[in-house]
Design a protein around this nucleic acid. Structure first.
Lengths: 242, 242
DNA sequence: TGTAATGTTGCTATATTAGCAACAAATGCT
DNA sequence: AGCATTTGTTGCTAATATAGCAACATTACA
């Protein structure tokens, strides 16, 4: 439902901190303006406002980075979300498979990872460790897109080049459709020979969990079953929270 | 530095989601307006805007709760913050003391907990599990307030009743000053006979870690030393991230 | 040294917000 | 049940804040 007096400044301002928070290095306001599609002057002033309340900061070269307030926002959002808390222990079980274990959500046309655990690392290192990844090249991204209306997906990519499908948007939409029908996301990367599979989490969908790594064809079904079970467990635990 | 065109809508809008995210039950817009001190109509319209972008939602009784977008915001803020990831393993070490272990940050005059672990529970359950607690009654709150300018602290509590110091603001400010001088926060709760101690984390300060529970006087120094060591470790690890 | 990029702001027409007052719906109380 | 509050919500218009071009100083790069 669209409000009586919608507030575009709030929407744009949120987009700006979110874009800023995902960066691992200082960013300029012009670059953020290009990335977000928001007019430059506006971005600059929103950043200055964010800096004023401590959510952003400027380094000596006047580039922007997140400020101390981001810890507070993280704390609050984490509490309001509860997704990481709920999924943490179930995901722990997956880590013994010696594959990458991930929990991600969709932001614009990219996947943001709440949890990304590489084999051999501690669970702590998995928390918010990975930044953004193009949704079209991610199994989590595909299964999350598959949970949206096709029109939404199309408007999300309107006028954009789709990573991994540079020559054919149609092929990409077909792939999304296929993902929807089979109920899980599957991406194979040729260069690393790695397979990623993802299953949606939440009812309605709030994100997805994934397993990724080199796996043989006959192992895939086993992994998929395990993944689906964990996804179901997380979804059920989410219901209980509310 | 205050910007050329500061954006109050963004500031207020952020305040509203933050307040909303900390609630464990649905809240009305009028209640949020009272809590935040923002004019009612504005809060209502900001909430509707937040609902429009998925950060908020209305339940059947038209009360507001966080929406699915909060998971995305949590993911992004968590990545931008890095505090939980950095502190997680060091905090794990503290859990074997059989005391409550907490990591909190200051929001307005309250403490928001990134991590709050009760003895006997899993680390996962500690993630963003506890909502808000009055800073004046929290060791984390006291040590964080002690890291601020006294003027800031006073303006934070201007015209308010200070929880735990209902009869004397002066006594509270004295306590803050004492906390600053001794370099750690100490709070004793008479009803439960529990002691809480907290040490600041980050340089400059971004939050604090705490130990809490029943402890004998002669144990306090030992615990304090351990706590200081862990705080130092976390602070150093934070430096390395940037 | 020149060229192109960057962060930043002054300016004013324009669009947006502020916030009172009013409304209907829900809730609490008797 | 009925009355009195309290709630979420919006219409309205004066007052305000924003949009965004163009320009500036500064920095990176050739």
């Amino acid at each position: 439902m669209l409000p009586a007096q919608p507030n575009q400044s709030l929407i744009d301002g949120l987009t700006v901190i979110q874009a800023l928070a995902m960066r691992d290095a200082p960013v300029g306001c012009r670059e953020l303006a290009r990335e977000t599609g928001i007019e430059l002057t506006k971005v600059n002033r929103l950043l200055k406002t964010l800096a004023h309340i401590g959510l952003a900061r400027q380094n000596p070269g006047r580039k922007y980075i997140t400020g101390p307030g981001i810890h507070v926002l993280a704390s609050q959002a984490l509490h309001g979300s509860g997704l990481l808390k709920t999924a943490f222990d179930p995901l722990e079980k997956l880590s013994q498979l010696n594959l990458i274990v991930a929990l991600g959500v969709l932001w614009r046309d990219q996947v943001s990872y709440l949890y990304f655990r590489t084999p051999g690392t501690s669970a702590a290192q998995a928390i918010g460790s990975l930044g953004l990844f193009p949704a079209s090249q991610s199994s989590i991204g595909m299964v999350t897109l598959a949970g949206m209306e096709m029109e939404e997906v199309k408007s999300l990519y309107a006028g954009k080049v789709i990573p991994g499908y540079e020559n054919s948007q149609a092929l990409f939409f077909k792939e999304v459709q296929k993902t929807r029908e089979q109920g899980y996301g599957l991406v194979y990367r040729d260069d690393t020979k790695e397979t990623s599979m993802a299953v949606a989490v939440g009812m309605p969908l709030v994100g997805a969990i994934a397993l990724s790594g080199r796996m043989k064809n006959n192992e895939q079904n086993t992994y998929l079953k395990i993944l689906k079970n964990i996804a179901k467990e997380i979804t059920e635990r989410l219901e209980k929270n509310l």
